[in-house]
Design a protein around this nucleic acid. Structure first.
Ligand code: SF4
Ligand code: SF4
Lengths: 130, 130
DNA sequence: GCAAGTAGGACTTTTTTAGTCCTATATAAC
DNA sequence: GTTATATAGGACTAAAAAAGTCCTACTTGC
C-alpha cells in the first residue's frame, strides 16, 4: 500500500512537538496534546532514543528531548528507527531475496526505485514539518 | 512498511514480460515462467485491463496484450490500478482524514511528501524495467 | 518514602495482504 | 455445434503485519 506506518506518523508528530517547543517533554504531554495512545507512543519514544535521535531522563521531571537539531533529522532516519523493514520489496540485500529470485527480472530496477525513494525521504527533515 | 504490495510487484513483472516479448501472452504463460500464482496473477491482469493498460481477448488463442507503449506506462499507474489506497498516510482528500485530524500538525507536510513520492513513481516506466 | 517518570516484556485485536477455489462466459478450431 | 482454451469474477480462507493494550520493573527528584 506504500503507506507509512502509524508508528512513523506518531514519531514525526512527537519530534515535531519537541522541535516546536524546543524543550523536554514527557510522553504523557505529547500523547495528550496529540491524541495518541500513551502506551504506543511510549514505545516509539524508546525506539527513537535507542536510535540516538532523542535523549531521555528518567524519574520526576524527566522526559524526552532532541539530541539533534530538527534540520539534522531526516524523515528516513525516523523510518529507519521505527520500522523493521523499510524496503520497497522483499529484496533487502543484493544476495538473499524471495523465492522467485531465480526467475526474477525486476530486482535491479526495484533497487534503483528504492534508492530514489530513500532520497526523497532523506531530503525532508523535521525542520520542514514546522 | 513503505512496501509495494506483491500485487504491484507481480503486475510489473507481467508488464515487463509483455513488453519484452512484444506479443500477446496468456496468464498461464506468464505465471509459469515467473513462478507466480496463476489465480493471483489472473486477478491482477483483470485489474490492469480495467485500468486500460492492457487489452484482452477471450477464448482459444486469447490472452493479454499491452494497450500502451512500455514508455507510456509509469509505475505509479500500475500502483494506482492495483492498490486500493496508495497514499502515504490515511489522509487522502484535503478534507476527510483520521480521527486525529483536529489536532494534527503534519497533514500539510505529509501531503507534500506524498507528491514527491508520486513523482518518483511516475518518472519510472515499464520501459526502464527492460 | 513516594510520586512521576522512563524501560520494556507479553499479549490481544484489528486490518491488510496473499492466496485459493469455484463457476460463468466467450471464442477459435475442428 | 461441440469442445478445448481462454478471460471474468465472486466468495472465501489463511497468513502476516500493524495497532493497541496491559502489566511490572526500575530510576530519580522532592
Ligand atoms: S520478485 Fe524479484 S524483486 Fe521482488 S522480492 Fe523477489 S527477487 Fe526481489
Ligand atoms: S495524523 Fe494527521 S496526517 Fe496522519 S492521517 Fe491523521 S490527519 Fe492525516
Amino acid at each position: 500500500m506504500l503507506r507509512l506506518s502509524k508508528r512513523v506518523e506518531y514519531g514525526l508528530v512527537a519530534l515535531q512537538h519537541l522541535a516546536k517547543t524546543g524543550d523536554v517533554a514527557t510522553v504523557r504531554e505529547i500523547s495528550d496534546e496529540n491524541s495518541i495512545s500513551y502506551d504506543l507512543l511510549a514505545k516509539i519514544m524508546q525506539d527513537l532514543k535507542r536510535d540516538g535521535v532523542l535523549y531521555s531522563s528518567q524519574g520526576v521531571r524527566g522526559g524526552y528531548g532532541l539530541m539533534l537539531a530538527p534540520q539534522e533529522i531526516p524523515v528516513n532516519r525516523v523510518v529507519g528507527a521505527l520500522e523493521e523493514q523499510s524496503s520497497i520489496t522483499e529484496c533487502t540485500s543484493e544476495t538473499e531475496c524471495c523465492s522467485r529470485e531465480a526467475v526474477c527480472t525486476i530486482k535491479g530496477p526495484m533497487h534503483k526505485l528504492q534508492e530514489q525513494m530513500e532520497q526523497v525521504l532523506s531530503s525532508v527533515t523535521i525542520a520542514q514539518l514546522l
